[in-house]
Computed example of a mutant assay.
Amino acid sequence: MDDYCPPVCSCYNSVVQCSNKSVGRVPYGIPYGTRQILLMNNYIKGIQLDLFAKYNSMEVLVLSNNWLTDGAIKGAFSQIPALKHLYLDGNRLKSVPTDLPVSLEELRLDNNYLRAISEGAWSRCPGLFILRLSNNNLGPGSIPDAALSSLRNLHTLSLDHNQLTSIPLGLPLLIKELYLKGNLIEQVREDAFHKMWALEVLDLSANRLTNAGLRNSLNATRLESLSLEGNRLEHVPRHLPPSLKSLNLEGNFISSIKKADFSRLKELELLGLARNKIFEVAPGAFRELAALHRLDLCHNALQQVPRQLPRGLHSVALTDNRIQSVPHDAFCWGDRTRSVRGFVRVHLEHNLIDVGKMDVRSFRCLQGFQLVHSY
């Protein structure tokens, strides 16, 4: 009955909420007209073969954080004609279900025990838009070449926190967001992103990448956000895409910034360089970054504020360095009338600055700025 609601659940409109109820099976009597069934955080161990066969309107099925295994869900989803979003994250699955419905647009399999991906797993759902496979046991050889290539509409792919040593070959060319954080990648092939013209977000943080391992591989022409945080870089990578708006290089071993390191990044708005070993910044190294709003240089070894910072900065973080002085042309340089800013937040906590010896002319062009000191 469409107006019935299982006693253990809460029902409103076409949503049935049965999460966090300590149930060991899917509750009986969920109305056939339901569009969303939420069953996360329970103890469900299996799903009867034809349980969802009559749920022709169901679009969202959430089974996150249960006790489901491969055999216990075999055939459970193939007869749901309208299903678009299937959440199976946080279970005990060792393989990708092979009976996924053709209508599926989003599949979450994070936090399972997957060890391999086969191309046949996607034969029934070529329209998949979002695929999340983070926190599994995917290692070398676990994703055969072109195993994901049939997913021609794939927009987002997450492979964070696995044991991958390289970027899988034959990824769908229309991917816009690719997440590979927390793997064991040491090298990226030069042609890895060459044909991925739609790629906008790339996260390679917490891997084992060196400058030699990157070479000229970061050549995605529309890339806007790139994270290389927590790798083994000793200098700023060369040939970064001019399209970048956000660049995270925090937690590496970079010791100096050269004048030409960021000269091509005219669209850059956010730049993270914290937790490196930077002791030297060439004068004017950031000067031409007209779009830069936020610059983070915390936890480095700088002895002075970098000179000729860009005029558009809203925030510059320089805490936990060894800064003793603020050069008169750090913030105010060139044509004085063009150097006036609206609001600038300058963080200088935990440095070696002697306020009594500070040259107040260094801040003459700042209006409404906030300067923070701590000793």
Rank of each mutant, 00 (worst) to 15 (best):
G29M: 00
L100H: 04
Y32I: 13
T98P: 00
I254T: 04
I353Y: 11
Y375W: 07
L233A: 09
D145R: 14
I73W: 10
P27H: 12
P172T: 11
P327W: 05
G46S: 15
S19A: 11
L214E: 06
L202D: 10
D261S: 07
N56M: 05
H85F: 15
Y179A: 02
L226Q: 02
S374L: 06
L204D: 14
L174F: 09
I167K: 00
A76D: 01
Q370E: 13
P81A: 04
L202V: 09
S217F: 05
V340I: 15
E234R: 14
V96D: 02
P27E: 06
A290H: 15
R361G: 15
N162I: 06
F77C: 01
L271V: 02
H293Q: 14
R294F: 12
V281K: 08
F253R: 14
L104S: 08
L100I: 05
K21M: 00
R238N: 08
E349D: 13
S142V: 08
E177R: 11
R287K: 14
G182C: 12
L180R: 12
H373S: 07
N20V: 01
L174I: 01
D320N: 15
L61T: 01
F52V: 03
V372Q: 09
V96I: 15
L371P: 02
H350I: 00
